[in-house]
Nucleic acid binder design. Structure first.
Lengths: 217, 217
DNA sequence: GCAGAAAAGTGCGTGCACGCAAGTTTGCAT
DNA sequence: ATGCAAACTTGCGTGCACGCACTTTTCTGC
């Protein structure tokens, strides 16, 4: 199940990617994200600047990636892992809530960093799009791959809704963080995700019913 | 109803924007889009290169904008114009189909240009995101602005679905265009849009029912 | 009308993304 | 073992996005 297409090659690749991620985050935390050049990141990770952007298309992506990790894969796995008994909507929503609540990103200050800088917030929002394809597969699995297009649309919609939720979360926490100093009341994120995703429940349910009717197990 | 915030100022601004759009498209058609520098576009439109990207964030956006026009505004208006009797789902879906079928973009060759070049296809896909905010307003209007958040999520989902539809359309037409030469069988786009948007109908209906129950007219 | 404010356009400098064409490492099969 | 092919890295060059400070134009209140 490990994503190991080929041996040594892929290992080094992941190692480089991880080194870049770590270096980017470390430097950003040390100096503040505006005083980090991609040359610095590349040097710290021991690769050429040119190689750097074989991995990341922007400085911001590298930093954000260090915080978000491989969340998209984890979300898809979490959906697949829910017992077949629970409804599709529940499976999807709870999987997402779980993965976005984890151990609070194993780095509060990193999250704070992201929240404050506009460019990083932007990049952070963009990561929501990454769950679309893994989630498509996970949903298609549950619907029985008869109609992969429906799964795709649903996954895209869920991803869009997650984006909206995080947008709102960033909006509110940015305001309150400005006021209260350094408080990051991330406590409301799960609720925000649930309420934002709620309007999509009927669509998920309907698709599930259709699938059951077509392929009664 | 005209977006006229202030007089002469806004006019000149729109004129410049239009000049840039036109210049970008003309040059792209003349020389092929890869041989157009933004300096050329700026020069052709009579502004400095620096001014150019006060208007467009990339060369591709300028070209695509010339073809898509202000579609997002037209979609929102079309939704608002549907009689109050028709259901929300129908209003939204048909408005979108209409606006994406118009007179086939008043320029077949321009569309063909977009379809062939990867960078332009990318930019074209991104335009779907632009309908989110206007559409949010239009949907909120129909739902009675009690809960603007629901409207937002639905609009974002619809935009995502439209993106998926166009992605598929580009995919299929790119293949068939390669084979058959210059044929652009855009005929299937409306159908594609309808089937792709269909899975969202339950969500739109449910939101509408909730609104009706809360605010029986 | 006129003065001051606001906004649009401009010049310049910097950092970055990305294509291309080597060079180098890894994998695989003989 | 060894040679070949594919993948990854690298240097270099080009075009571009964007911040900043400044000029010019348009708007607003007196």
């Amino acid at each position: 199940m490990t994503t190991r297409r080929t041996g040594l090659r892929e290992q080094k690749k992941q190692a480089t990617r991880e080194a870049l991620r770590a270096a980017a985050l470390r430097l950003a935390l040390e100096r503040g994200p505006d005083d980090v050049r991609v040359d610095d990141i590349a040097e710290a990770a021991g690769v050429s600047p040119r190689t750097y952007n074989n991995y990341f298309s922007s400085r911001e992506h590298a930093i954000v990636a260090a915080v978000t990790g491989e969340r998209e894969a984890r979300v898809a796995a979490a959906v697949a892992d829910r017992p077949a008994g629970v409804g599709l909507a529940d499976a999807v929503i709870e999987a997402i809530v779980d993965q976005y609540t984890a151990p609070d990103e194993s780095g509060r200050d990193a999250l704070l960093l992201i929240i404050t800088r506009p460019a990083l917030r932007e990049a952070f929002l963009e990561t929501t799009a990454a769950i679309e394809h893994p989630l498509t597969d996970a949903i298609a699995e549950r619907l029985g791959d008869d109609d992969p297009h429906t799964a795709r649309v649903l996954a895209a919609s869920v991803a869009a809704a997650v984006r909206v939720a995080i947008e709102r979360w960033l909006h509110t926490t940015a305001s309150s963080a400005t006021i209260s100093g350094l408080v990051v009341p991330s406590g409301s994120l799960p609720d925000l995700l649930r309420t934002t995703l709620a309007p999509l429940t009927p669509a998920l349910d309907a698709a599930e019913q259709r699938a059951l009717r077509r392929r009664p197990r």
